[in-house]
Simulated scan of single mutants.
Amino acid sequence: MQDILNVIQDVQPYVILGLVAINLIFFILIIVLFRSLNKMEKRYRKFMRGSNNKNLEELINLYLDKVDESKSIAEDVKALYDNMDERLKGCVQKLAITRYKAFEDVGSDLSFSIALLDDNNDGVILTGIYGRNESTTYAKPIDKGISRYDLSEEELHVLNEATSD
């Protein structure tokens, strides 16, 4: 029995040193776990902000409802955009204008031709001829870039300029 006590007394400093090392390791682990827990708690509080004691299932359902509502609104906006895009194709999108002197005895470039076309090259060419004694305005319809009426050189120029855009 005395031999066992002597062996224990001989290894006692090593046992105490080992226990201190183990306690030090546990202490470091506890500090790491507390820091990790604090980070987790901050993330949890950020996740649960504004929930006012709701449980997680209610909060997730609320967010899913908001996602569904946002998806519905986005689909409505897309349909509205598609409708508007289709309507815009019928608006004047291509424009060309030229001014010229129709008669030699008239002083300035007061005559003009304007092409107003939509996305399908449908529209009108307006021509105003200014003379010394009178002024005349013509409108010639354009269908898919072609006129049923004969076009003057200036009208052909503005039609080609508008359709080339």
Rank of each mutant, 00 (worst) to 15 (best):
M40E: 10
D119C: 06
L88N: 11
E41K: 13
N6Q: 12
L37K: 09
N6H: 09
I114K: 05
L64T: 00
M40I: 08
K39N: 14
S72L: 13
A115E: 03
Q93M: 13
N23A: 15
L37C: 09
E69G: 11
N120G: 05
F34Y: 10
L95H: 01
D122G: 04
A21L: 11
D105T: 04
K39W: 06
N121A: 05
K66C: 02
L80A: 15
T98R: 02
E134R: 12
K94P: 01
R49D: 09
L24C: 06
V32A: 11
Y44K: 04
E86G: 12
L80P: 02
Y81N: 11
D109T: 00
D85Y: 12
N83K: 15
F34H: 08
K39R: 13
D10N: 13
E75F: 01
K42G: 09
N121F: 07
V67I: 15
A96K: 02
K101N: 13
K39A: 08
E41R: 12
D76H: 02
R49Q: 14
E41G: 06
I22F: 10
L19H: 03
A79T: 12
V15E: 06
S36R: 15
L24A: 14
S113Y: 01
D85T: 08
D10A: 14
L126H: 08
R43F: 07
E75H: 06
D76L: 12
F34L: 09
I28F: 15
D65K: 15
L24T: 14
L117D: 03
I129D: 01
L116E: 04
N55F: 09
Y130C: 04
L5P: 01
E134M: 07
L110E: 04
Y14A: 14
